[in-house]
């Protein structure tokens, strides 16, 4: 059994979550990674995606919309501008986000931006599956 470490999810409006957890799957901009206790210190930006938090209370999914994560050997702090629990997702909000993202895709942009939007759409679709 892995040891626990401190996980904090902070949004500009509040500290959304602060708890001891066993493992966290973080959607980093350079690829997803899982943090256990004693992880090497990393600061990374996030892509829109779902954070999976495993603790003694089971697995929680939290959707984050850009932000960054600070990993140290004893804690993980995620600063996200917008975040919500996947089981609290409003399907209508999801639909409008998806529409907005698809519109942005049609409008185009440079490759990097397009890739981001594309990823966001994938993520939103995945979320829709999870929420349904």
């Amino acid at each position: 059994m892995a040891g626990t470490f401190k996980f904090e999810l902070v949004t500009p409006e509040s500290i959304m979550l602060s708890m001891d957890v066993e493992q966290v799957l973080v959607p980093g901009s350079e690829g997803d990674f899982t943090v256990f206790e004693g992880h090497a210190p990393v600061i990374t930006t996030l892509r829109p995606g779902v954070i999976h938090v495993t603790s003694s209370e089971g697995i929680k999914g939290i959707f984050v919309h850009s932000g960054f994560a600070e990993v140290t050997s004893e804690s993980l702090i995620v600063l996200a501008e917008r975040a919500f629990m996947t089981d609290e997702i409003d399907p209508r909000q999801l639909k409008s986000d998806l529409d907005a993202a698809e519109k942005a895709l049609e409008e185009g942009g440079d490759d990097e931006a397009l890739r981001h939007i594309y990823r966001a759409i994938e993520e939103l679709k995945a979320l829709r599956g999870e929420a349904a």
Binding site: G28, S29, E30, A40, P41, V42, T44, T45, F68, E70
Partner: peptide, 28 residues
């Protein structure tokens, strides 16, 4: 450096993270 002597690693790299953070910081 941290207490245990390990420096942070930055992804994608320091410059990009800093630029990103500074932009975010304006909103904050």
């Amino acid at each position: 450096k941290q207490d245990d002597g390990a420096a942070y690693e930055y992804e994608p790299d320091e410059g990009i993270v800093l630029d990103y953070l500074l932009k975010r910081n304006i909103g904050t």
